[in-house]
């Protein structure tokens, strides 16, 4: 049985036993290592999210390149005012989530919770606006796919333009998947707010809040691209 032992080894073993913050998992040597790992893991997860959406952007690019007119016509029926408002709503929620990290870094529990809850409210607002947008479309028979059957003034003429359904399919799939991410994000943020309230986090350790924040920003970034491509063609 051979085991190379050297000063460094004992050192790392010691570190582990001397300070043992409650959040430190046994297989990490230090909080720093644990934090760095979590963060790199999160960034890797975020690029999987980006690549997941990339296929939708590619589909968008391909069909828009082929049918620019149909896309322009179809896009003009989307409500750019609501879209802009939603963009601002999400940007604000990004700000509040960034603030929550700022406050937890300063150990200000109350402000952290408030920032997180504001984020939650803004995210909810985004979904409500999105709901009304969807409903306005469904009312006029604008559905993804086969069910697409535009009715009513301002929409009827779409039926005659080929490839308009492609635009709406892409629109619904993209915003739908984005919406699912918003819902998941709300769950995470609510959970973080509760944990922050419970006092789980401090300036020593707030990794989950930071990771949730990263996730939320990516959701925002995807919307930043969706907005001009879908609403402002």
């Amino acid at each position: 049985m051979s085991t190379e032992t050297a000063p460094a080894t004992t050192e790392s073993v010691e570190t582990e036993h001397d300070h043992h913050p409650p959040h430190l998992q046994h297989h990490f040597v230090s909080s720093e290592q644990q934090f760095d790992s979590a963060k790199l893991g999160m960034w890797l997860f975020l690029i999987t999210e980006i690549l997941l959406f990339s296929a939708l952007f590619v589909a968008y690019a391909v069909y828009r390149n082929w049918n620019p007119m149909a896309f322009a016509e179809a896009s003009s029926t989307l409500d750019w005012v609501l879209g802009s408002v939603n963009t601002i709503v999400l940007l604000t929620s990004s700000l509040t989530v960034a603030l929550s990290i700022h406050f937890i870094q300063k150990n200000d529990k109350q402000k952290t919770v408030i920032s997180l809850l504001s984020t939650l409210v803004l995210a909810g607002g985004f979904l409500v606006i999105k709901y009304f947008e969807y409903m306005a479309k469904f009312e006029h028979g604008i559905y993804p796919g086969e069910a697409f059957a535009p009715t009513g003034s301002g929409y009827e003429y779409l039926a005659a333009i080929p490839y308009v359904p492609q635009f709406f399919s892409i629109y619904f799939v993209m915003t739908g998947i984005h919406g699912v991410h918003v819902v998941i994000g709300m769950g995470l943020i609510g959970w973080m707010a509760w944990r922050a309230h419970r006092g789980d986090f401090s300036d020593e350790w707030y990794t989950p809040v930071e990771l949730t924040g990263l996730y939320w920003h990516i959701v925002d970034i995807i919307w930043i691209f969706l907005f001009p491509l879908l609403y402002l063609v």
Partner: peptide, 12 residues
Amino acid sequence: ASAKATLVVMIF
């Protein structure tokens, strides 16, 4: 959009 995304990624 990229400028906005860059700001979010870099600072936020």
